[in-house]
């Protein structure tokens, strides 16, 4: 996956920006987070026979301008869930980066190897940069993630944007010409997906920032 070099990544914050059509897309298959890995026995028991991870594919585009990077995720979702409602949860998505090359994607890292999660949830005003060291351990950090989302005709389009360089070793370092590992995850709030009830891209992929 290539993050295309553009003149202004800021213009790409709008998911509907025309400039996105000039960026190649890549379709990434998603699978449900395995029920046996859920950290709560209640969740493992009650969700044993339920569908986890309703969203099974996400279309991804990425671009940068040497200062900022923008990642755009787009997926089918007939139900627009924008808040905590009666037995429904807000839709959400995240872009994942291991901050230590060995961090496993399926468990969102380990106590030793963290995963940086650029997180968007439909009810939040701003994206969040989270650090996880295993399922259920993600913690919010002070690093802001700009995010914008549009729901139209049964599809969510969400853009995550961040400066290439931020402080803190737990946040992914992005450099033009370099390659990092990347993963994707989506929560379908209408299916009561929250926490580790979600779909995710099974393996790390490579994201190269065009020089």
């Amino acid at each position: 996956m290539l993050a295309k070099k553009v003149s202004s990544a800021g213009a790409l914050l709008d998911p509907a920006a025309k400039a996105w059509s000039k960026v190649d897309r890549e379709v990434v298959d998603l699978v449900g987070m395995p029920v046996h890995l859920q950290s709560s026995r209640y969740v493992r028991t009650v969700w044993a026979d339920k569908l986890i991870g309703k969203v099974r594919a996400v279309s991804v585009r990425a671009a940068h301008d040497g200062e900022r990077v923008a990642v755009r995720m787009e997926w089918n979702d007939d139900t627009r869930n924008t808040e905590f409602a009666d037995r429904r949860f807000p839709d959400a998505a995240a872009v994942l980066f291991p901050t230590n090359g060995d961090a496993p994607l399926v468990s969102l890292g380990t106590p030793e190897a963290g995963v940086n999660e650029w997180f968007w949830r439909a009810d939040l005003e701003q994206g969040e940069s989270l650090i996880a060291h295993g399922l259920g351990t993600d913690e919010k950090t002070d690093v802001p993630i700009d995010s914008r989302a549009v729901w139209e005709d049964g599809r969510w389009s969400v853009v995550f944007s961040r400066p290439l360089k931020v402080k803190g070793t737990e946040h992914v370092k992005l450099t033009p010409g370099k390659t990092v590992k990347v993963g994707f995850t989506v929560w379908e709030g209408n299916n009561q997906e929250r926490g580790d009830l979600r779909s995710y891209s099974r393996q790390w992929r490579e994201l190269t920032l065009e020089p």
């Binding site: 859920q38 709560s40 026995r41 209640y42 969740v43 399922l135 259920g136 351990t137 926490g195």
Partner: peptide, 10 residues
Amino acid sequence: PACVEACPRG
């Protein structure tokens, strides 16, 4: 407490 056991985040 079923609530405590159910929370995946501790």
